[in-house]
Design a protein around this nucleic acid. Structure first.
Length: 575
RNA sequence: GCCCCAGUAGCUCAGGGGAUAGAGCGACCGCCUCCUAAGCGGUAGGCCGCAGGUUCGAAUCCUGCCUGGGGCACCA
């Protein structure tokens, strides 16, 4: 089979664009040399992917950009360049279209060869070397362990985990991290609330703190501790809560969060405790000394300030309160010092809820001040989720009345559907999560559409196995139907999608791509099964054609499974 | 007051200088003697928030305004 394609050396989806650009550039040089085109400076004109497949696979807008300088109508320039594009096995002869596009269409031979590329790559299909093994860290969710995760945290989990997977596919050495806020004021409030609930179980009439956590889960947590440890944590009436109780409560909450995320399919490499920043030899002391040394700290009004206004911020910010306790901001500076300087990540992504927006700029400024490169810190903000139930909008709040936990969501709609929906929207857009709709779990749910395509691909291969048909020696040059070639084109886009996600940090391209890949498959499948001509079925009487199609089916399954995997979804063989 | 995000089909949202602006859902019309119809084909539905500007070309970039959300703590 190798000889069949030996005339097609650039047969690789990854660098076809570059190859085609070089063809166009060569054509321009030849056109100039032949006197068909004036010798003017060339503007940047990367090849585009036409929206409409009728316009080919790639298009150059060079003639449009060249028109003014060359003082010629763009269409004329397009013809001149197109005429000089050298013959190449990867493309059909170029065409031109008004007002001045040069359209390039990949050849059937090139497309067919992609099937072999996909199968040869297998599970690593569409992997890129963009990251070149550089260390990247994605920190996400990192919700305070003062309550169960809610639906909004689920959005952060889906985004962060998919982003981490996409970066790994793009060649980064990726670590997933959860930052456990176990040292701040909210932790104290949590402890006080827990102790109040705990005492209530022993008949003491104590209220929970005014700014405490009123949720029922705190009562359950106290009950759990009482069952396990009895009155071990009970101090004499009126005395403060024993520190050990708060620590135990936090530990139990973190366990619960870890379980929830596990059920969501998210697994971390590292659970990083804020507290450890303050250990002997921890990052906090070191970074404060560094800031002091560099003249970024000022003591006034009894507090210690980071003089960020000197570095372009609107104002200075307190890092150590007048009572001696560090602020959250101080923790975060130390934490990012640890990420960049101590651990040496060259790309750090923080996935935060949009309510942390005000914190972004000053953290970047601080990152620069402590020896990190702010450009390598990407803070990805996602808008909070607006829940809708029964047409009614429900705001998410850990302190408010109604909480929909992530556990409940997973229970009701499944982790695959939940993840898909969360990824579907760009992080910056407020999204509406219609619980009634999601709970339906009907065909309206696009996640089934994508997974069903995978199940169908699997069942075709299964059917072929039953009939002792192997895809091993299929000759893909038999595949010339438009639906077959369209499916290959769609498979080829995956590396582009991964590159886009890994460079723009916009995971919504993943589910959108998955849907169009599934659509291309369904069109392929249906085209053949609906027709009366049995030779058009995937599994036909023509054994050679059948084997060729099975090869395509195998490749399509690999591509679809890959994108599902990056999204953290399962790729079912049966539904 | 200042900063950030959003405003695109009835609904939820993609697209973010190029060719007739897309998808899903909803509506309407077709398609299973079946390799899963959880599917496919088709129709209807848009001054891309408003007004200027830049450009050969603007939903996309710039300016201003309107609307919704978020932020501007010795909270996190």
């Amino acid at each position: 089979m190798a000889t069949l394609y030996s005339e097609c050396p650039m047969a690789n989806a990854r660098d076809i664009r570059q190859h085609l650009e070089s063809l166009v550039n060569a054509a321009v040089r030849d056109a100039v040399a032949a006197g068909d085109l004036p010798d003017v400076a060339l503007p940047e004109a990367p090849l585009e992917r036409p929206k409409d497949a009728a316009n080919g696979d790639f298009a150059s807008t060079l003639p449009l950009r060249l028109a003014r300088a060359a003082m010629k109508p763009p269409l004329e320039i397009a013809r001149a360049i197109a005429a000089h594009v050298p013959a190449d096995p990867s493309i059909d002869p170029p065409t031109v279209a008004p007002p001045g596009f040069i359209n390039l269409r990949l050849s059937a031979a090139f497309l067919q060869r992609q099937i072999e590329e996909v199968i040869a790559s297998g599970a690593s299909y569409a992997d890129l070397a963009l990251g070149r093994g550089k260390k990247a860290q994605v920190e996400f969710v990192s919700a305070n362990p003062t309550g169960p995760l809610h639906v909004g945290n689920g959005r952060g989990a889906a985004i962060g985990d998919a982003l981490a997977s996409a970066l790994a596919a793009a060649g980064y050495d990726v670590e997933r991290e959860y930052y456990v806020n176990d040292a701040g004021t909210q932790t104290d409030t949590f402890s006080d609330t827990l102790y109040a609930r705990y005492q209530q179980l022993f008949g003491r009439d104590v209220p929970i703190p005014a700014d405490g956590y009123p949720g029922e889960y705190m009562v359950e947590l106290a009950g759990e501790i009482k069952r396990e440890a009895g009155d071990t944590y009970l101090s004499p009436p009126g005395e403060a809560a024993p520190a050990a109780l708060g620590q135990l409560g936090i530990r139990l909450m973190v366990d619960r969060i870890r379980e929830t995320l596990g059920a969501f399919g998210v697994h971390y490499d590292q659970w990083y405790n804020e507290k450890s920043l303050y250990d002997a030899g921890g990052a906090f002391q070191e970074v404060m000394a560094l800031l002091r040394e560099r003249g970024h700290l000022a003591d006034r009004e009894g507090a210690t300030w980071f003089t960020s206004s000197e570095l372009g911020e609107d104002k200075d910010n307190v890092v150590i309160r007048s009572d001696g306790r560090p602020t959250y901001y101080a923790s975060d500076i130390a934490y990012h010092y640890d990420k960049f300087v101590r651990r040496g990540f060259s790309l750090v992504i923080d996935v935060w809820g949009a309510d942390h927006h005000g914190h972004v700029s000053r953290l970047k400024t601080a990152t620069g001040a402590i020896g990190g490169n702010p450009e390598n810190l990407q803070v990805l903000l996602y808008q909070l989720v607006v829940l809708k139930r029964g047409g009614e909008v429900v705001r998410l709040s850990k302190r408010g009345g109604e909480i929909i936990t992530l556990d409940e969501l997973i229970e009701e709609v499944g982790k695959d559907a939940a993840r898909f929906f969360f990824l579907l929207r760009s992080p910056g857009a407020q999204m509406e999560f219609d619980l009634d709709l999601a709970v339906k779990q009907s065909s309206e749910n696009p996640v089934f559409y994508v997974q069903y395509a995978h199940a169908r691909l699997a069942s075709m291969l299964e059917r072929a196995r039953e009939q002792r048909l192997s895809a091993e020696d299929g000759d893909v040059s038999r595949l010339t139907q438009p639906q077959e070639l369209a499916l290959i084109r769609e498979m080829m886009r995956l590396s582009d999608v991964i590159e886009t996600v890994a460079t723009t940090f916009e995971p919504q391209h993943l589910p959108h791509y998955a849907m169009s890949l599934a659509t291309a498959f369904h069109a392929f499948n249906d085209a053949f099964k609906q027709q009366s001509d049995p030779s058009l079925k995937v599994i036909t009487e023509d054994e050679a054609l059948t084997k060729a199609r099975l090869r395509l089916v195998l490749a399509a399954k690999i591509a679809l499974a890959r994108v599902l995997g990056i999204m953290g979804m399962t790729a079912p063989d049966r539904m």
